[in-house]
Design a protein around this nucleic acid. Structure first.
Length: 139
DNA sequence: GCCAACGTTGGC
DNA sequence: GCCAACGTTGGC
């Protein structure tokens, strides 16, 4: 079954603009068990909201999973554990960014893990939450 | 720039 | 196995 996700990134390290320039990216560097488990559950074609943390604090676009979990090539001998990444491709920019403040203010979204668990970097979304964000964005 | 929340590490 | 210390993330 197709699922919806949200990934966070600081635009100063990797932005939506850079993502679009690249055309695709291996979503590497996840070093959190919960986030990793979510990466493993991603299926090809799943839709992923792209969120800018710290700077902007808004959802800026939609990506799709183009390759399911595979070993993270950025892991070397100094890193313990069995880490994975996925390949993402940009699908569509939001017409208008949806900010964290708006998400918190929205009755349908304020229970999102993005709000409740702000440090998790890969977050599963309910379809209704995903749709609501697109609605707020005007897409 | 500060600090709260959380995860990880290491001593016991 | 507990818990204090520490590092990191991310909102404000």
């Amino acid at each position: 079954m197709k699922r919806c996700w949200l990934v966070k990134t600081e635009p100063s390290s990797y932005s939506w603009e850079q993502f679009n320039t690249d055309g695709k990216v291996d979503w590497t560097g996840v070093r959190n068990f919960q986030a990793r488990n979510h990466l493993r559950e991603m299926q090809k074609g799943d839709e992923v909201l792209f969120y800018h943390s710290v700077v902007g604090k808004e959802v800026v676009g939609i990506a799709t999973v183009s390759k399911t979990a595979f070993p993270d090539p950025t892991v070397d001998e100094s890193v313990k554990g069995d880490w994975v990444c996925v390949e993402l491709r940009p699908k569509k920019a939001l017409k208008r960014g949806v900010t964290l403040a708006e998400i918190k203010a929205d009755a349908a979204l304020k229970e999102m893990l993005l709000v409740r668990h702000s440090r998790l970097s890969v977050i599963p979304l309910a379809k209704a939450e995903f749709d609501r964000i697109l609605e707020l964005a005007g897409n």
